[in-house]
Nucleic acid binder design. Structure first.
Length: 463
RNA sequence: GCCGGGGUAGCCUAGCGGUAAGGCGCAGGCCUGGAGAGCCUGUGUCCCUUCGGGGACUCGCGGGUUCAAAUCCCGCCCCCGGCGCCA
């Protein structure tokens, strides 16, 4: 069995598969032919260089045993050969760089089960949970999003407040002041919402640690060389904050620091899978999102997140993606928040990912299902770039290859809070606390236990 | 930040201008009633192959000197110890 980098393997053995993936993503498929040609040239050149080097090594070895005329003659010969080798090596290096550049630029090859499509509209819902509260005016919109599934729902005649309005109404959040001192998309949260934030995180790590996930706190910054292994170049401009004057980037998710944790590692098959429940703040520029979700805390530059991360054997990753989305569903059905799981279409997938499920919570005030969880199989896209390998006993001694990596949100705090503020909102604006979170609030004397009520701000500037 | 020591194959260790030595682990083979011990071979990356094998590369990373660099020179990264600073 061959376990080379899957992209190079496919290029040499099944280039049509890469082309089909490129087409499905709406990208240029001629890159594949270009890579194929470069690879062929590179291999030919390498063979030639190897022959020259062999000759040079032979002469060089002879020189050590010679003296006088003979030695001088061979020295001259070696010098000339070295010049030629230098030239050919430059050609080789250029070819290799170009081939690598093209290959690294090709997005992950999508899985057969990924729906072909261009936009959000082409994502395919596969499961629904819960009984959404649907405001009468959103009924058509809701039915459209249910796409023929038989989903039980409850029509309500009062319009829930949006989560942004709820921050003001409850007096527990301030995005205006945050905008003044930081920029927009930041927030101050107070009291009950802080307890709720922590409660959500604790709930998630308590659950995941019982599923065999190792709880892990990670660096909040990574150097570029590590970061290049986990994401695409465009993310460095669009998503990541850079520390001024230093080779450091704030992490957008602990997925990145966890993947990087095993950079250059070689794992025994017996050690896999490795399961991690990452705990971290996440920092995102949201550069391409002007005008979207500008109010409130749905889309922010900084939030807390519990992340599931798996390193596994290649043949197990398609099983693991189902288990990860399953874990996320257990957490969210535990919260009793209505959601649907969608299979993300080819055109919406990032380059890193071969397949992705999103878990989208029903948002009663928006009349929409909105993304809460993103669950992805990255195959060897990250592990190749980070050089994370496994070894196993094969027929001819040890076999080595690249592990597969997967990641999935468990709970991202601010988004989960928005979902709770809208789904657990009573007509009077109070918010019931999901039962499953209550144990994690019990331990704090001042934390809310059953209901979040509006408060008058002690600062008095707002409300 | 300063001074010293260090980074060698999966792990540990030698080598300090002449083409990576040794040990452990692991795999295969011999031996055995079986196991162990012992002995032999192999052990990273890549290319070519008529599938027998042949060859190149690899000593933290990147340059330089040389016919030849793990070894000498320059820059950078990381680890350990000490000093300084510090929650």
């Amino acid at each position: 069995m061959v376990y080379m980098w899957s992209m190079l393997y496919l290029l040499r053995n099944d280039p049509e598969k890469i082309k089909a993936s490129q087409r499905a993503r709406g990208l240029d498929e001629s890159l594949v032919d270009k890579a194929l040609e470069l690879d062929l040239k590179w291999r030919k050149t390498l063979t030639r260089v190897n022959e020259l080097r062999r000759e040079h090594n032979k002469i060089s070895r002879e020189i050590a045993t010679l003296s006088g005329e003979e030695r001088i003659k061979k020295l001259e010969e070696a010098r000339k050969l070295a010049e030629r080798i230098e030239f050919e090596e430059r050609v080789l290096r250029d070819l290799e760089e170009e081939r690598t550049r093209v290959l690294l630029g090709i997005p992950n090859v999508i899985h057969d089960s990924v729906p072909i499509g261009r936009s959000e509209e082409d994502n395919v819902p596969i499961r629904f949970y819960g009984k959404p509260k649907v405001y009468r005016e959103f009924l058509d919109e809701f039915l459209r999003q249910v796409k023929g599934f038989n989903v039980d729902y409850e029509v309500i005649d009062w319009k829930p407040k949006g989560h942004a309005d709820m921050l003001d109404f409850l007096g527990l959040g301030d995005t205006v002041k945050a905008g003044e001192v930081a920029t927009s998309r930041f927030y101050y949260l107070f009291d009950d919402l802080v307890w709720l934030d922590f409660g959500l995180l604790l709930y998630a790590i308590d659950f995941l640690s019982q599923q065999g996930f190792r709880v892990i706190l990670t660096p909040y910054m990574l150097r570029r060389s590590a970061y290049e292994g986990v994401t695409t170049l465009s993310d460095f401009e669009e998503a990541l904050y850079k520390i001024d004057g230093e080779d450091l980037f704030l992490i957008a998710t602990s997925e990145h620091s966890i993947a990087a944790y095993h950079m250059n590692d070689l794992m025994d098959e017996d050690d896999l899978p490795l399961l991690y429940a990452g705990v971290s703040a996440c920092f995102r520029k949201e550069a391409g999102a002007h005008g979207k979700d500008t109010k409130g805390i749905f889309r922010v530059h900084q939030f807390n997140k519990i992340e599931q991360f798996v390193f596994c054997m290649p043949e197990e990753s398609w099983d693991w993606i189902e288990r990860l989305i399953g874990n996320a569903e257990k957490l969210w059905s535990g919260l009793e928040i209505p959601y649907r799981v969608v299979n993300i279409c080819s055109g919406e997938l990032s380059a890193v990912v071969a397949k992705r499920y999103d878990l989208e919570a029903w948002m009663p005030a928006q009349g929409k299902y909105r993304e809460m969880v993103s669950c992805s199989n990255c195959l060897d896209w990250q592990s190749y770039r980070l050089n994370i390998r496994f070894q196993r006993k094969g027929k001819k001694g040890l076999e080595r290859g690249y592990v597969h990596t997967l990641n999935s949100t468990a709970i991202a705090s601010t988004r989960a809070i928005t979902a709770i503020l809208e789904n657990y909102q009573e007509p009077d604006g109070c918010v019931i606390i999901p039962k499953v979170l209550r144990p994690y609030l019990e331990m704090f004397k001042k934390a809310p236990k059953e209901v979040i009520y509006p408060v008058k701000s002690k600062v008095g500037k707002r409300n």
